[in-house]
């Protein structure tokens, strides 16, 4: 337990140092570079004229669909990891129970494929 937490403590310190380095780099640029903003310079990039309206517009529903399908497959991967570790211990029974699980999800995957949810035209 102690050694485990010590390893994670190193991780936290590493994260802290890298956070420090990257924010330091931005800070350095703020200190060194000459800032000379004026309204025309600060407009969002769009072909030389002001953007017509707010950018949060209608977007294709497929982006949501991809995100949802990603969640499901990500959970599947998350279930696979501990299984991969202890496959030697749990043997054939564990293997079969995972195959049933994957089979259920494969049904969903085939349904998806048939319905054309994976197509981007």
């Amino acid at each position: 337990m102690q050694t485990l937490l010590r390893e994670y403590f190193c991780l936290v310190v590493f994260f802290g140092i890298s956070l420090f380095i990257s924010s330091f780099m931005v800070l350095l640029a703020f200190l060194r570079a000459k800032q000379n903003p004026y309204p025309e310079k600060l407009t969002p990039y769009e072909c030389g004229f002001d953007p017509f309206d707010d950018m949060s517009h209608k977007f294709d529903v497929r982006f949501y669909l991809v995100a949802i399908l990603f969640i499901i497959f990500d959970i599947e991967v998350a279930f696979l990891f501990p299984w991969a570790i202890s496959l030697g211990e749990i043997g054939v029974f564990g293997f079969v129970s995972m195959m049933v699980f994957l089979g259920i999800l494969t049904v969903g995957f085939l349904y998806e494929w048939k319905k054309g949810a994976l197509d981007w035209e």
Binding site: I68, E76, F79, S86, F93, S97, F101, L105, V107, G108
Partner: peptide
């Protein structure tokens, strides 16, 4: 995957339902 295999498969069915629903 052994002791809680049934619950594990139920989780699979829930995921299937989510997929079809989406």
């Amino acid at each position: 995957y052994t002791h809680y295999a049934v619950l594990f498969e139920i989780a699979g069915f829930i995921l299937l339902g989510a997929m079809v629903g989406a």
